[in-house]
Design a protein around this nucleic acid. Sequence first.
RNA 1: CGGGGGAUAGUGUAAUGGCAGCACGAGUCCUUUGGGAGGAUUUAGUCCGGGUUCAAGUCCCGGUUCCCCGACCA
Length: 414
Amino acid sequence: MKATQFYFKTRKEISKDEVAISAVLLTKANFIEKLTSGVYNFLPLGLRVIKKIEQIVREEMEAIGGQEILMALLNPRSNWEQTGRWDSFKALFKLRSKYGSWFALAPTHEEIITPMVKNYIYSYKDLPLYLFHISDKFRDEPRSKSGILRGKEFIMKDLYSFHQDEKDLENYYEKVKKAYQKIYKRCGLKAYVVEASGGTFSRFSHEFQVLTPAGEDIFYHCSHCGMNRNKEIMENTKKCPECGHKIEELKGSEVGNIFKLKDKYSQAFDLNYRDEKGEIKPVMMGCYGIGISRLLGVIVEANYDAKGIIWPKETAPFQYHLIGLFKGIKKEDKEIKKQTDLVYKQLIKKGLEVFYDDRESVSSGEKLVDADLLGLPQRIIISEKTLKNRSFELKERKSNRIKIVKLKDISKII
RNA sequence: CGGGGGAUAGUGUAAUGGCAGCACGAGUCCUUUGGGAGGAUUUAGUCCGGGUUCAAGUCCCGGUUCCCCGACCA
């Protein structure tokens, strides 16, 4: 992709209202733009990362049998009345049609998926079933904060599982836990699996926490036995309740949460099945969420330096940042541009994701600074200096390691 | 929802109740080019609605909206 044909514009200064480092960097580098409190637009760069994250999530969900669906976001009031959450879910966005009927903007999808699968699950032969959904979610948060880490509209993946009994639910729950760990690892993050309360869903749940000062959760961690427990469900103590060793208090951002719903929603919607003996039994359910847009923010919170973002390979919007250092005034510049164009064509032909800063009226310094801010994993520089040796410079954003590569060896860097 | 602080040009900031100014950005021209270059020139602003006053960015009332702390967080 050529910069001059892309929605690409960096900013030195942005509104002072933005305080979270992820929101500052993502705004400066033109990944996101705030519409209003807790609501952001995802620009081409930001959307590319969102899609990368979604793809990772999609692959890992499909690997454990998940099938993707897309449920409606505009929900009729009756579904929410059925579970009592029309009144009890405080963050529910409610809106009234000018013709009189009431709707909710979906904050989660138990109220939709449970009655939906009633038309599919009749017998034990139809179980287990795993369906997931990636879409915007709406929550009327009393206080949005920290850029895209906590908003009123955000992107979330929710997986719902349906089982014959609790044992099958337990087994799958553990499978999901492992799949989640893979997802975070691929996103370049280390996530702690933390025991937490289940809110109104279940007695307990597991949260996936990534350490960051911008996070909102405090949890206790025991480095001796590996116990992780959210502060909200633990008595004030300095000793591990499991092994007695000293524990530490950590601050994290919740990037996932999984629950054993058991029959809570099956009961509300009469979701039952017939077992081998013909007996009617409630379907056991689990639900599993990952905040996709929050992940975008958390990845930045966990991967940046004074110059800008440092994208982990799998979530980078592009892999290579190609720069030709010239402005087109001197005779030599024509040769630099020609060579850079050529390298771009070669890389594109190989199917690589290249961001080519082909701006001609921008100083070298600005191109380099923008490259650091953007934070793509690899930077390729062609200049008068490198062309003297018929070569280019390959620099890794994360380590700052530089390799000088001959132009004719370009295919070897891949 | 409780408490606190804001809203002046795209951004950041000035202006005792008395001509709305500066910097960055953006446009044009000239020079410059391996770490956010220099000069010339142009551009663009008082959140909305009332009120007080000869005069309101400034004072008063109402609204909208943003940020921070806390509560909430399925």
